[in-house]
Each structure stands twice: as structure tokens, then as C-alpha cells.
Design a protein around this nucleic acid. Structure first.
Length: 322
DNA sequence: AAGACCAGCAACCGCCACAGC
DNA sequence: CGCTGTGGCGGTTGCTGGTCT
């Protein structure tokens, strides 16, 4: 007798999530926060198993998730980290802010794997030079893991320290960014700013989803979709409109973070003009995301320091004959 | 124009680790 | 110390939309 499947109950819905379900889930998490997934279906009335709820949240609704094409930098990072870590997608995802392990896994399976195969079939062994990887090179994974973990830990610590010298100021920034985010015209105070800022991102995700959902509707105008989005924001942000303008409000805190990151990684990854990233890296979102991954890179960052040391170290190991 | 094929992606499944009892 | 419940992870499936023939 095997163990009973967790989602084997009758009446448990499977298949694609509907926008309504998404809203229910996000609303619940807005109120209670993520975690205790077992309670989610019971409390929300969703006919989904806890696992499905968690997956939906982490892979799709969670704030700060970036969708769409992978950049060359991300390509390189994934290929490189995959060579080092193997198919440990969660670990790899930790190095790619805004990407989920599922996304990376899919991207690898559907695109990068083939790309690598082609390159290998192309003949020359060093043919992966364009992605900075030598796949034939053996690796000592234990060493790499330790270094990677240490690096994550140090990055987190350094970031925390960078933000902590003036905690009062930091919390002021938090409050400021939140009130700005939901209060662009300064007219209305929200009651749960520290959480809402996160869920605005979630609402953004849902809005994107809805866009797709509605895209087949005949002559669905931009106005209509804007109305829809605003409705979401109104619902989720407690009556205020947290449109993309709202991200302006996070600029000040983003600048602080930007400095922290610059001092950490030596590049300007957090251009405050990058609203998407600013939004996702708002302190609350960062804290929120902290449950799963460090936010250590920008969207279109240059060949970053982390990758640099990965390559340097790979070269070093090669020299040492590992 | 229609069917076959393919690629991309969301979601599911099963296993594992860990915490609480 | 073993059992149980829960969450996390990686592999896999199946649906959908696009392209090819």
C-alpha cells in the first residue's frame, strides 16, 4: 500500500486556475500571509488542494515574479549554474531574482538543453565558450554548494547590514514607500500598508493574467482592461488605486537598496527608473520574498560579479586540474 | 483550409526532509 | 525514537497555440 496521494480527495478541482480562484487565493494570503497552506482550501472555500494553492502562489501569484523572455545574462547564469549544480532548480532560482524554479526548469527543458546539445553536436569542445561554460569539465559539487550557500548567506547579511545602521530611517522609508504606493495623490491612508505593497504586485500578476484571459474578447479596449485592473487594485489595496504609478512611491527605498546593492556587488543594478524591479524590490516585497530567494541582481545587469567569480573559479579549478 | 506536428508552459505527481508530537 | 503532517523540490504530463505540410 502506497501512501495516499495528498490531492486524491473527491471534489478537489484540478487543471488551470481561473482568475476568480486567483483573486480568492491572493485575498486570503493578503489577509493571512503565505504559509499554513493546509488551511487555505478550508478557509477560502477553494476546491483546490493545499499543494496546488502553494504552487499557484509561488509560481505565478507571488509578488516580484518576472515573466517573459529570458535575457542573455539569465541564459548564461542558468547554463552556468546548471553545469555547477545540476538540476537543482530551486538553488539556481535563488540566483535569478524574479524567476521561479518552475520557469527556469521549463526554460531549460524546452530551450537551453537543446541549445547546448546543438552546440555540443557542433563539434568543438570549447564551443560553449559563448555561454562561459565548459560542460566537459568535472566539478566538485560539494565545494560549489558550500560556496554558493555562503555567498547567498553573505549577500543577505550584507544587505541586512546595509539597511540596518539606521533602522528608524529604514522603517520610515518603508512607511513612506507604502503610503506613496497606495497614496499617489496623497488623499487616502491605507490601513495595511506593509502587506498591501506586496499584494499590489500580486494584483499586477493577476491583472496580467486577466489581460490574457480577456484578450480574446472582441474589441476589448485598453480602457476596459484598465478598469479591470483598477478594480483589482481597489479590492486588494483596500480601496486605493495602486496602478503602475504607484511604483514611483517606492523610488526612495529603491535608491537606498540600490546603494546597498552597489556596495555589495559593485554595479548599478537597481536603476530606480526600472519600475518593475523597483516594485519587486521594495523592502516589503524583499522581506516577503526572503522566504525563498535572495534579491541580488537586476533585470538587465551587466555580467555581474557573482557570475564573474563563478567563471573565475571555474577557470581556477581548471588550472588546478579538478 | 485542414490536419499533423511541435514548442512552450502551467499544473500535477511522487518522493524527500523536517518539525512537532 | 518512531510516527505523522506539512512543505519543498524535481520530474513529468497534458493542454494550448503556433507552424508546417
Amino acid at each position: 500500500m502506497g501512501r495516499p496521494p495528498c490531492c486524491d480527495k473527491e471534489g478537489v478541482k484540478k487543471g488551470p486556475w481561473t482568475p476568480e480562484e486567483d483573486i480568492i487565493l491572493v485575498s486570503y494570503i493578503q489577509e493571512h500571509g503565505p504559509g499554513n497552506w493546509k488551511a487555505v482550501p478550508n478557509h477560502t472555500g477553494l476546491l483546490r488542494c493545499s499543494k496546488s494553492c502553494r504552487l499557484r502562489w509561488t509560481n505565478y501569484l507571488r509578488p516580484g515574479i518576472k515573466r517573459g523572455n529570458f535575457t542573455d545574462q539569465e541564459d548564461k547564469m542558468i547554463i552556468h549554474l546548471q553545469a555547477l549544480l545540476g538540476n537543482r532548480w530551486a538553488a539556481i532560482a535563488a540566483y535569478l531574482p524574479q524567476r521561479t524554479d518552475n520557469d527556469i526548469k521549463n526554460y531549460w527543458n524546452t530551450y537551453l538543453k537543446k541549445k547546448l546539445k546543438k552546440l555540443e553536436a557542433g563539434g568543438c569542445e570549447g564551443s560553449l565558450g559563448d555561454v562561459g561554460v565548459s560542460v566537459s569539465q568535472p566539478m566538485s559539487r560539494g565545494q560549489w554548494e558550500r560556496r554558493l550557500q555562503t555567498d547567498i548567506h553573505m549577500a543577505k547579511k550584507a544587505l541586512t547590514e546595509a539597511l540596518s545602521p539606521n533602522k528608524a530611517y529604514a522603517s520610515t522609508l518603508l512607511a513612506e514607500s507604502n503610503s506613496n504606493l497606495f497614496n499617489d495623490n496623497g488623499s487616502n491612508n491605507t490601513t495595511k500598508p506593509t502587506q498591501s505593497i506586496c499584494y499590489a504586485s500580486s494584483a499586477d500578476n493577476i491583472a496580467r493574467l486577466l489581460k490574457g484571459w480577456m484578450k480574446n474578447a472582441p474589441k476589448a479596449s485598453r480602457a476596459a482592461s484598465a478598469v479591470t485592473q483598477n478594480s483589482f487594485y481597489n479590492n486588494l489595496a483596500g480601496g486605493d488605486t495602486a496602478s503602475s504609478e504607484g511604483t514611483k512611491g517606492s523610488t526612495s527605498s529603491s535608491v537606498e537598496l540600490s546603494e546597498a546593492f552597489e556596495s555589495l556587488f559593485g554595479y548599478e543594478s537597481l536603476d530606480s527608473s526600472n519600475s518593475e524591479f523597483s516594485q519587486s524590490l521594495s523592502p516589503e516585497a524583499t522581506l516577503f520574498q526572503d522566504e525563498s530567494k535572495p534579491d541580488i541582481a537586476g533585470v538587465d545587469m551587466p555580467f555581474n560579479l557573482l557570475e564573474q567569480w563563478l567563471l573565475d573559479d571555474a577557470a581556477c579549478q581548471q588550472k588546478l586540474g579538478f
